[in-house]
Write a protein that binds this DNA or RNA. Structure first.
Length: 220
DNA sequence: CACCAGGCAAGTA
DNA sequence: TACTTGCATGGT
């Protein structure tokens, strides 16, 4: 059985991204950087209560006020700047019109997003996959943790682009699959100890020996 | 008390 | 190029 089916059978569909609008996905993508999602939900709720979840309104909000509202998400000063950097990018290049943003081609969007200070590869790809519904595979710390813990990757593959290529090369080009796959990796990865090697809390091992799992890049 | 969370940029050598 | 550090709240 493949890794995806193992995770899906065990945890069920994750139905990501938890948001009402595409803009909310983008805002959440910045706010959740190295931060528990529960804290992000509070921050987003504050923005909703103030009616600030629009490109124009976020752009018009002073950094100090924005920082105060997103306080529960942590790193609030730097994230206020990063949010506004992203909104400014949408405003300048796409006339603050998200539908115009959505019409641009994927590679142009990715280059543009990565040019925004505060938007790195994971945030950019999360926006592309979960807001713009492009077939882009999102890599994160859990992806590296799970694959490395099971000996599925080598050191020279352990870069963002390297892992991304690995999944791209082994999976059909299907945005809904990429969506659920990454969400399941996050869900599964939470059960892996950060430092220790494989232990009885590490799901894939508990479900069966690694060599019985046909995973992307598995050399067994 | 320590450690972690759906990263990223800036500083250092 | 390759590490290291700052950013910060809230939960376990």
């Amino acid at each position: 059985m493949e890794m995806f089916d193992l995770m899906l059978n065990h945890f069920g569909p994750q139905n990501w991204w938890p948001a009402e609008t595409d803009l909310e996905v983008m805002v959440g993508a910045v706010l959740t950087q190295n931060t528990n999602w529960k804290n992000v939900e509070r921050a987003i709720e504050n923005l909703k209560d103030k009616g600030l979840l629009s490109v124009a309104n976020l752009n018009a909000t002073p950094n100090s006020e924005l920082a105060h509202l997103i306080r529960p998400a942590g790193y609030y000063n730097i994230k206020a700047k990063r949010l506004k950097n992203l909104m400014y990018f949408i405003a300048e290049r796409y006339q603050a019109d998200l539908s115009m943003f959505m019409e641009d081609d994927t590679q142009t969007l990715r280059q543009g997003l990565l040019s925004v200070n505060g938007v790195g590869p994971e945030t950019a790809d999360s926006i592309l996959l979960y807001a713009a519904h492009r077939t882009v595979f999102v890599i994160d710390a859990y992806t590296y943790r799970i694959l490395s813990r099971h000996g599925m990757i080598s050191e020279d593959q352990a870069t963002y682009d390297g892992l991304q290529d690995l999944f791209i090369d082994h999976l059909p080009e299907d945005a809904s699959l990429f969506n659920e796959f990454h969400a399941l990796i996050v869900k599964t990865g939470k059960n892996y100890c950060k430092r220790k090697p494989l232990c009885d809390r590490c799901p894939l091992e508990k479900w069966g020996p690694c060599h019985a799992v046909d995973l992307p890049g598995n050399l067994d």
